[in-house]
């Protein structure tokens, strides 16, 4: 099995995530798409670690996982507080700020 397939898969996942962020309306779903992008980056890191024959990429994936978890916690806290105020998690409803 050639590792290139994993790179392609990661690129596809990253694109799906990026498109999801742009077109989905629910803040939670948008956020899950961001997580998908982070995990696509992780897959790329691990695959390149295999191709390059070094461990750095795997260690980086660890760091990314921890950072992503911290981001989840902060993000869910913010989304929850706005949901409790508005009874809605749609990013279209959050539209008070404009000129």
């Amino acid at each position: 099995m050639t590792p290139e397939y994993y790179l392609v898969l990661a690129a596809v996942l990253f694109t799906i995530g990026a498109v999801g962020v742009l077109i989905r309306r629910n803040a939670i779903v948008v956020f899950m798409c961001v997580e998908l992008m982070l995990n696509a980056a992780n897959l790329t890191l691990v695959t390149f670690a295999r191709i390059n024959g070094s461990l750095d990429g795997q260690i980086m994936a660890f760091f990314v996982m921890v950072v992503a978890a911290a981001e989840v916690v902060v993000g869910l806290a913010i989304i929850m507080s706005i949901f409790r105020s508005r009874r809605s998690a749609s990013v279209d409803d959050a539209n008070l700020l404009k000129y």
Partner: peptide, 9 residues
């Protein structure tokens, strides 16, 4: 989630 993932290190 946050305390669980720290174990990874």
């Amino acid at each position: 989630i946050i305390f669980d993932i720290e174990i990874v290190f």
